[in-house]
Amino acid sequence: MSTFNKLIQSNNIVLIDFTASWCGPCQVLAPILKEVKDELGDSLKVLKIDVDKNQLIATKFQVQGVPTLILYKEGKQVWRQSGLQSKQDLLKIIRSHTD
């Protein structure tokens, strides 16, 4: 957990993707997140967390369903959403917090 907290604190913008291998929408979201990361480059850090393998973290963040995305800026949560998101929506949300 301390490594996790350090990652959130040390990077300007961090997008956490709570996911599961059996989750259909999570599989659809994976390439979208890759495209978002490719477009934003080093300004964005993306962390994928498998809720089945990391139940403690999922519980701590009160993840009820997957995919759940949480955006952190300078260590503070600025956005959270469950469900599939489009590339355009994600870029708009992330950019609104990087200006």
Rank of each mutant, 00 (worst) to 15 (best):
K6R: 14
H97Q: 09
D38K: 03
S21L: 09
L71P: 14
V51L: 05
I57G: 06
T59D: 07
N11E: 10
I57A: 06
R95N: 15
P31A: 01
K53D: 15
S21V: 15
L47V: 13
H97L: 01
F61T: 07
D52F: 07
K6E: 15
G24P: 03
K53P: 11
W79T: 12
N5T: 14
G75D: 10
G65N: 10
D89H: 06
M1S: 14
I8H: 03
L44E: 01
I32D: 04
L84F: 11
Q81K: 11
W22M: 07
Q81M: 12
P25K: 04
R95E: 15
G24C: 06
Q85V: 13
D17P: 05
Q55H: 08
Q9T: 13
K53L: 15
V51F: 05
M1P: 13
K34D: 14
Q88V: 13
E39L: 03
E35F: 01
L15N: 07
R80G: 11
I70T: 04
D17K: 01
D99F: 12
S43A: 10
C23P: 02
Q85L: 14
P25V: 10
L15E: 01
Y72G: 10
E35Y: 02
G75Y: 07
D42C: 00
L15A: 09
T3W: 04
T98R: 08
F18Q: 10
K60V: 02
I16T: 09
L29Q: 14
V28P: 00
K48G: 14
K34R: 15
M1Y: 07
A20L: 09
A58H: 08
V51S: 06
P67Q: 05
A58V: 03
S86M: 08
L91H: 03
F4C: 08
S10P: 04
I32Y: 07
A30R: 06
P25I: 09
K45Y: 00
V14N: 02
L56Q: 13
L56G: 07
C26S: 14
I8F: 01
S82K: 05
E35S: 15
D38W: 04
T19E: 03
G65W: 01
Y72F: 15
L33E: 10
K37H: 14
K73P: 11
S82A: 14
Q85D: 05
W22S: 07
T98Q: 15
K34E: 15
I94E: 02
V28D: 05
S82G: 11
L15D: 04
H97A: 03
L29H: 03
T98M: 15
S2D: 15
Q9A: 14
V78E: 10
K34V: 14
D42E: 12
G41T: 01
V46H: 02
F61Q: 01
S10I: 07
S10A: 06
G65E: 13
I8A: 00
W22R: 04
